[in-house]
Design a protein around this nucleic acid. Sequence first.
DNA 1: CAGCGTCTTTGTTCTGGCGCAAGGATGGGA
DNA 2: TCCCATCCTTGCGCCAGAACAAAGACGCTG
Lengths: 231, 231
Amino acid sequence: MAAIDRSLVRALPMFEKLSDADLDRLLARATLRRVPIGEAVFEQGQKATQFFLLLHGRLKVTQVTSDGQQIIVRVVHPGDIFGFAKALMREDYPGTPSAAAESLVLCWPTEVWGLFVEQNPHLAVNAMQTIGQRLQEAHTRIREMATEEVERRVAHAVLRLIDQAGRKEGGGIRIDFPISRQDIAEMTGTTLHTVSRILSAWEAKGLVEGGRQKLLVRDAAGLATLAEGES
Amino acid sequence: MAAIDRSLVRALPMFEKLSDADLDRLLARATLRRVPIGEAVFEQGQKATQFFLLLHGRLKVTQVTSDGQQIIVRVVHPGDIFGFAKALMREDYPGTPSAAAESLVLCWPTEVWGLFVEQNPHLAVNAMQTIGQRLQEAHTRIREMATEEVERRVAHAVLRLIDQAGRKEGGGIRIDFPISRQDIAEMTGTTLHTVSRILSAWEAKGLVEGGRQKLLVRDAAGLATLAEGES
DNA sequence: CAGCGTCTTTGTTCTGGCGCAAGGATGGGA
DNA sequence: TCCCATCCTTGCGCCAGAACAAAGACGCTG
């Protein structure tokens, strides 16, 4: 399993209250895995045998419908745990997380989840809060999809992205991993064509600056205004 | 706080592994509240001071957008816990649960949540599974809203309803609480007009039977076929 | 640096379902 | 019993955005 970078793990809020001994015990059960761009950590429908923690990189979790349509359910950022289906009483993984950027993942066998939570109550509480936040986010998205039109949904999605994965750059905020129009379309329930048109319009207004698999937000405030309604 | 019907509580899966003594300790901190039709247990945005368990009846949880649009985020069924925002690190309630049918609710102050989980690990695990299931459901809904057209979404929503709140009745399955076209519209992200049209069409095909705030599903299988695609 | 696959842009056509409008049914309350 | 508040149905016009189509642009590979 090679050397697991303890400082990376230590820095995560989820583990900050853990004793060194407990942390070591956890890490002893873990394996480290490098995931190159495009590769999946596991596949939707596969039996859940492990759960994971993203140390570095970026994953997009997709679900495929029976008729082949694909959507992006969420984006996994460094420090997030994912794939803990077993803890939720599921036998299989509900989605496929694939690497949008070169990623580094910690893997534990599902049996360790018990250790994870029993031995250390914060972790359980923390995990619950995490899921709780995701639930909120999901509800927000449902509300957006139900009530807002496409342009506002895209604006919201982009704002969320720069919030979660924004890096300051001369004259704006860049989304810090490769993301295509298609991806944004799958996050907002529309088509890449429509997204492209919208981004072009925004670029003309000086709100953003596009590029192949790139997006730089020039005027986050303007975008927020747009997202909130009155265009 | 009057007499809390212990048999009602005992029957819930969430508490089945709890000792009588522990159960009593929990119930000692609870208050019982009757919620008449149309009334809200609490309001969206209100500070979270309590969490709840629905003993009897039916609640629909709505969220209102800044521009006044309303959607139904979920339906609370007997045995479900709800409004535990504090456990998820939120200060306020994210939605408004109002009674679709005369309801009976157990209320605990948020401080008791600690007791709830620490004293009894199953409860924590159970709560987490519950949230996990909701998260799944939410993702399913997101996927549906993103990829399916209105008729299929409505079909899915109705199927979920008869699954969660169906009561057998001569020649079909009835949704066991008052539900309007408007409600279904708010669950599927459409308008009551469209829902009405769809239900009329279904009625003509012999799939369902409508009525004021009523819905009887005559042919669940047919509906399922419709929901899955090939019309 | 030429070739190719992937990603993006932009135009045109077409349609699901929303907005608007009007009328009809149902049940509860006085 | 009648009235009134809700709730439901149905018709019609319109438009956001999907579907279809076809070029362009970028960047990687050999």
